[in-house]
Design a protein around this nucleic acid. Structure first.
Lengths: 195, 195
DNA sequence: CTAAGCTACGGAACGACGTTCCGCTTAGCA
DNA sequence: TGCTAAGCGGAACGTCGTTCCGTAGCTTAG
């Protein structure tokens, strides 16, 4: 999905080197200026031309995906284990969402990029959803089956909602995305009928 | 805040005419292509040059503000009356938020523009907050005083949260912003102690 | 070790954007 | 009817993501 080729073999040495340099440079640029860092800046940081960036990563979004791939996969993995580790499905969902929020607000502007203006980040957007959607779906299903939360909110809607709430969450003391996401998740709860 | 001059008098006739045409053209363009409609398109629609747009409205955001000014003022007004018309402060808050959501999702991409990438729409963003923030604050305060909702969510955070939830809410059957905002507002509730 | 051949490179160029600038048009007044 | 400044149009600038193409240089066959 990212532009990276599969084999390290069968490719020229400088190509492999440049791809590595590009990933490092992009990661650094994203930390310094957020995910909206211009392609030219990333290319300059890596000491290559813009053309090289686009041969390795067909589009800006593919580069972002490649940089954050590991962490997203970790998120997917965490979703699998959460259900076993937490006492209730709702607690598992809450914890997993919290991890997701962590990820989104840690990377400057990732959330913004995720649902940015239009098609520019479509690849990023759909990759995130494809990867994390099923995880969220499973957690939600479990909580619904346990009668803990309302059943009319789909995984897609919840993920997008959480993602949207995380937009522009840095550098603003008056807006704490984590708290608001907490409110949203609390709003999912159904009244406890067990008493 | 919008670039519009105060008096209709003391200005050349063509200037007044052009400003009117610009407002109409912008409104039409926003309906057709969303608030992100290019300035050139708006200028063309109005039959003027881009320079004319910028003399009347120093920045894109000012034009957006001018176009939606009436509706935002109506929102402010509604906030004042909601408290009297609804049985509880929480109901008033919920109804007002619903109106706000209506406004945001009706205008294609207004929510997106509100919290877009960076400084491009800063003027729009802060104008909205300045205008609607106090209204929200009053509704929240009333509901907190009545013991209906938690007290740790400020007006600013709530407005931004709702605005963010409305981002990209059109053209996507899987994502209903109104429902999610409903969940968020439900999450504000404190358990009823009156029994 | 050399030379051919093709992979991968650099960066100029393109088209979109918001915004600025300036020479000319023209409304409004005497 | 002419003067003058308010107002106009749109070329031009700097930003962006992306494309293109001439060429440098890695790789491998001989």
């Amino acid at each position: 999905m990212a532009g990276t080729a599969e084999q390290g073999t069968r490719r020229r040495a400088d190509a492999r080197r440049n791809e590595e340099a590009l990933l490092d440079a992009a990661a650094a640029a994203f930390v310094a200026s957020g995910v909206e860092a211009p392609v030219r800046d990333i290319a300059a940081r890596a000491g290559v031309g813009v053309g090289t960036v686009y041969r390795h990563f067909p589009t800006r979004a593919d580069l972002v995906v490649a940089v954050y791939r590991h962490q997203v996969e970790a998120c997917v993995e965490a979703g699998r284990t959460c259900l076993d580790e937490e006492p209730t499905p709702y607690a598992a969902l809450a914890r997993w969402i919290d991890m997701f929020v962590d990820f989104l607000v840690t990377k400057h502007g990732l959330a913004t990029a995720l649902r940015s203006d239009s098609e520019r980040f479509d690849a990023l957007h759909s990759w995130f959803l494809d990867r994390l959607g099923p995880v969220a779906a499973r957690l939600i299903e479990a909580a619904v089956d346990a009668g803990e939360i309302r059943s009319d909110i789909g995984a897609y809607a919840l993920m997008r909602g959480v993602g949207n709430l995380c937009i522009g969450a840095e550098n603003d003391p008056r807006y704490d995305a984590r708290t608001l996401v907490g409110v949203l998740i609390a709003g999912l709860r159904l009244p406890d009928r067990s008493g």
